[in-house]
């Protein structure tokens, strides 16, 4: 996210927004996690209780998806920092 065009007040509003966002993001992660792991792990409807095989699969799926989300967030932040650095250098160069 390139915030270089924003004023100080906008930046602080953006920070407040980001905190509020974290709760939203948690809920979205939660709902997506349930939906994806259900889709990938539960395909037997001859019983109404999770089998131990399905249970194991859900556990691994949750662990994997959380690690994946964290890794994506980390890399995305790095790419973004790199981009801002490049833009600042460009601005320096053009002055």
């Amino acid at each position: 996210m390139d915030f270089s065009g924003l004023s100080d007040m906008e930046r602080s509003r953006m920070n407040a927004f980001i905190e509020q966002k974290q709760m939203k993001d948690f809920l979205r992660l939660y709902a997506n996690l349930v939906d994806r792991c259900f889709a990938d792990c539960v395909n037997d409807f001859t019983s109404k209780a999770l089998s131990s095989k399905e249970d194991t699969c859900v556990n691994r799926c949750v662990d994997k998806f959380i690690k994946h989300s964290e890794r994506v967030g980390l890399r995305f932040g790095e790419q973004n920092a790199l981009l801002q650095q490049q833009q600042q250098q460009q601005m320096m160069g053009s002055q």
Partner: peptide
């Protein structure tokens, strides 16, 4: 119909499990 009933029960169970897991973490 039977499949839907079981699907809802299982979805509910997965939802609980994931919630407990996230809370624990």
């Amino acid at each position: 119909s039977v499949c839907i009933d079981r699907c809802v029960a299982k979805y509910f169970e997965v939802n609980m499990k994931v919630g407990q897991k996230l809370t624990a973490q």
